[in-house]
């Protein structure tokens, strides 16, 4: 199977002050597929994910070396508009963090920031993306209540809708189901499987079985290094590296 690369990472090293979190990572992430980044906690998965939308820029004393190409442009190169770059990627974090406003305003937040003012248009957008994230039926009668009144599972789907509403090409998920109960997790997973028809999805997970269920492509990290990457089948069934084998067997946690 041949993959068309969407994000190309080249010799990426990231350090927080003196602590090196990523060491010389080079990998291509395929377009319109689900890539799972797996590895034990503290190995740099979040750092790698957040380097794609340059959210790590905000951390004090961060140093980034190397390149990340998105559609051929180095996002760490000169002349890159970070807000524009971030708009191309929706982010789901470990726990849902709704913005301190209503359900409606949460979804409309992104479009408003990017200059959409017409109420009719905003309404359409909000409805569309709430449907897209399978939340519409549950909230259509209380769009103007605070988002914090939703259950955690609903909040995570709201965060998905909020991210989709800025029309990204890529969805980034940082262990997006780790705070959810099994049913809510399953809904997010189903969503991802549907959404990969339109979006490139990169999801960090430390649940191996989730990676097996979702992933088309797998990136295995260990202590800041990329150990192995490849099509999911190949990595899971026939890992090339000793470390990967250990992790999949559950020896390394």
């Amino acid at each position: 199977m041949e993959y068309k690369a969407h994000i190309r990472v080249r010799n990426l090293s990231v350090s927080y002050g003196t602590e090196q979190a990523l060491k010389d990572v080079t990998v291509d992430l395929p377009e319109k597929k689900i890539t799972a980044i797996i590895g034990p906690s503290g190995c740099g998965k979040t750092t790698l994910l957040k380097s794609f939308n340059r959210l790590i820029d905000a951390v004090d004393g961060i140093k980034v070396q190397g390149e990340v190409y998105l559609n051929g442009d180095n996002i760490y190169g000169p002349g890159i508009d970070v807000t524009h770059l971030r708009q191309k990627m929706g982010l789901l974090s470990q726990r849902p963090y709704p913005l301190p406003m209503s359900i409606y305003d949460n979804v409309a937040y992104g479009p408003r920031i990017h200059g959409i003012r017409k109420r009719r248009r905003l309404k359409e957008i909000v409805e569309h993306y709430l449907r897209e994230s399978s939340l519409w039926d549950e909230v259509k009668d209380r769009l103007h209540t605070p988002a914090s009144s939703l259950s955690v599972g609903q909040q995570q789907r709201l965060c998905l809708a909020r991210g989709l509403a800025v029309e990204p090409e890529i969805i980034l998920g940082d262990e997006p189901t780790s705070a959810l109960d099994p049913t809510a997790s399953q809904r997010i997973e189903e969503k991802f499987l549907q959404l990969k028809a339109k979006y490139t999805i990169v999801v960090v997970t430390h649940i191996l079985r989730q990676a097996i269920r979702l992933a088309d492509y797998v990136v295995f990290m260990y202590l800041g290094q990329l150990i192995e990457h490849g099509p999911a089948r190949k990595v899971f069934e026939n890992p090339q590296e000793e470390l990967t084998r250990g992790y999949i067997k559950g020896v390394i946690v």
Binding site: T83, M89, L91, S93, P98, G110, I113, R162
Partner: peptide, 11 residues
């Protein structure tokens, strides 16, 4: 993370 959520949307 609330700040991150906003920044990640391109704010």
């Amino acid at each position: 993370e609330v700040r991150e959520a906003s920044l990640a949307l391109g704010a």
